[in-house]
Each structure stands twice: as structure tokens, then as C-alpha cells.
Simulated scan of single mutants.
Amino acid sequence: MKNTLDLSNAAWRKSSYSAGGDNNCLEVADGYPGAVPVRDSKRPEGPALVFPTDAWSAFIEEHRS
């Protein structure tokens, strides 16, 4: 999904599926119907990937421990 969302005011939070620790975190932003913006917490100024909600859910389900 091409990132055409305005994420300038996104409220980022550490993903509950992140492995933890200060150096290994994904952040996600809520409030984007049909989309899940994801970024690297070490590079908050960097790009974000935006996944369709169903694709993100399938990814999480596939990689659960």
C-alpha cells in the first residue's frame, strides 16, 4: 500500500508485538481505518510503511510465538 496518509500528527506507540528492548522496537499508529502505519523506533524521522489492516493482521498471526 503506497503511503498517502498524512502521518505528521500520528500518535505512535510501541507495538505490543515488538520484541522489546530499547533497540528493537516497532512503533504503530492507531486511528487510520483500513491501514496500519509502522516505523522503526530508532529512526522516528525516517519513512513509515503502511500496511492494509488485513495484511498486517495476517503477518502478526503468521509470526506469533
Rank of each mutant, 00 (worst) to 15 (best):
D54K: 12
A58H: 04
P37M: 03
P44M: 07
V50H: 03
Y32L: 05
L49K: 03
N9D: 13
I60P: 00
S8N: 12
V50T: 05
E62C: 05
K42P: 06
D22K: 11
P52N: 05
W56K: 03
P47G: 13
G20N: 09
D6C: 11
I60G: 02
C25Y: 08
R64K: 14
V28Q: 01
P44R: 06
E61Y: 04
S15R: 02
L26T: 11
S41G: 06
Y32W: 01
K42L: 13
W56M: 02
K14C: 07
T4F: 14
Y32I: 04
S8R: 14
N24H: 15
Y17Q: 12
K14V: 12
A55R: 12
P44C: 06
C25Q: 13
D40Q: 04
L7M: 11
T53H: 10
A10M: 11
L49E: 04
N23H: 12
G21W: 09
D22W: 15
H63G: 02
P33Q: 15
S15E: 04
D54N: 11
A19F: 08
A35Q: 07
C25H: 10
T53Q: 15
V28C: 04
D40T: 02
A35E: 07
W56P: 02
Y17H: 15
E62I: 05
G21F: 10
A35S: 11
G20Q: 09
V28F: 05
A58R: 08
A10H: 08
A29E: 08
A10Q: 07
E62P: 01
L5G: 07
R13K: 14
G34E: 08
K14H: 05
D6Y: 10
A35T: 04
L5M: 08
A10G: 09
K42H: 09
H63T: 07
G31D: 12
E27I: 00
S41E: 12
A11G: 10
S18I: 06
S8A: 12
P33S: 14
N23T: 14
E61H: 13
R39E: 03
L7W: 10
A58G: 06
P52T: 03
A19C: 06
G46E: 05
C25I: 10
T4Q: 13
G46C: 02
A35K: 07
P44S: 06
P33K: 13
W56R: 06
V38Y: 06
Y32M: 02
P47S: 12
K14R: 12
D40K: 03
S16E: 14
A11N: 15
T53C: 07
H63C: 05
G46W: 03
N24Y: 11
